[in-house]
């Protein structure tokens, strides 16, 4: 039996507005699980709670109620962070550092030796087509280049679980294709991938299973093979819209 490596149970998160300290619910009783070596796509409209879910899984936020478990430990546990790679949405870097310096830094915090850092950084820079820009200050990078660097840094420790938040945002069509290729390669290596996206064609191509998040609630979850049968993403789009409209009717 395959054991789940990512589990949330009745996960709820309330945010407080800055003005008047008004409370609003960003995530409402989310229960999901992701098995080892599975590629799970969390899809939803903007503001559905996808990024909040990721932040709770990584310990950037603390749950209002419910629980989070990644590799058997609570979100953000140090021993778990060693085994995961994270790409935030539109990643931001230190503008005065070069791409190679940031990867070197990332490698060092994971305890890689100087030689390992150098080799791994060179491989990853090549993989994301940034070798020529390796010694350029990140401040001079385009949005797409930063996204590529974000992908590279998330893989520096050869993680067991990969959390990527909108990995194809800011990328041109060639960049998007490259990211899909990287994802498929990581899948082949047996990595567990947790993907946040609202780009359904990408999700359709790489994910094994999807969850539809709407207004903080999981309104649908199914295997991609059952939804599209290996066909067009339009079936996934139809499923997505159906999940959302039926949840609206219930509300």
């Amino acid at each position: 039996m395959i054991s789940p490596v990512i589990v949330t149970e009745h996960l709820t998160k309330d945010h407080m507005s800055h003005f008047l300290r008004k409370r609003f619910r960003a995530l409402d009783g989310l229960t999901l699980s992701v098995d080892r070596s599975e590629t799970y796509g969390l899809i939803g409209l903007n503001g559905a709670g996808k990024t909040t879910t990721l932040k709770l899984l990584l310990g950037l936020l603390k749950p209002t109620s419910g629980s989070v478990s990644v590799l058997g430990s609570p979100g953000g546990a140090q021993q778990t962070l060693r085994k995961i790679g994270f790409l935030p949405e539109s990643p931001h870097f230190y503008s005065y550092l070069t791409g190679a310096e940031f990867l070197d830094f990332s490698g060092k915090v994971f305890g890689l030796t100087k030689v390992e850092c150098k080799e791994r950084a060179a491989d990853l820079l090549k993989m994301v087509s940034l070798t020529e820009a390796a010694k350029t200050a990140i401040g001079k990078y385009s949005k797409g280049m930063m996204q590529r660097l974000g992908i590279a840094q998330s893989l520096i420790n050869d993680p067991e679980i990969i959390f990527w938040d909108e990995p194809t945002s800011g990328l041109d069509p060639i960049g998007r294709r490259d990211v899909r290729m990287i994802l498929l390669k990581l899948k082949e290596q047996g990595k567990t991938i947790f993907l946040n996206s609202h780009l359904l064609p990408d999700v359709n191509e790489v994910c094994d299973r999807v969850g539809v998040l709407h207004r903080g609630r999981l309104v649908g979850t199914d295997k991609i093979s059952s939804i599209t049968g290996g066909g067009s993403y339009q079936d996934l789009e139809a499923y997505f819209l159906e999940c959302i409209s039926s949840s609206e009717v219930k509300v």
């Binding site: 990584l58 310990g59 950037l60 953000g76 140090q78 021993q79 962070l81 060693r82 995961i84 994270f86 935030p88 990643p91 931001h92 870097f93 230190y94 990332s106 915090v109 994971f110 974000g150 840094q153």
Partner: peptide
Amino acid sequence: ERRTIYLIVTKPIA
């Protein structure tokens, strides 16, 4: 503010 912290505290750094 610049959200560079997301790439720091999600690594094994106390």
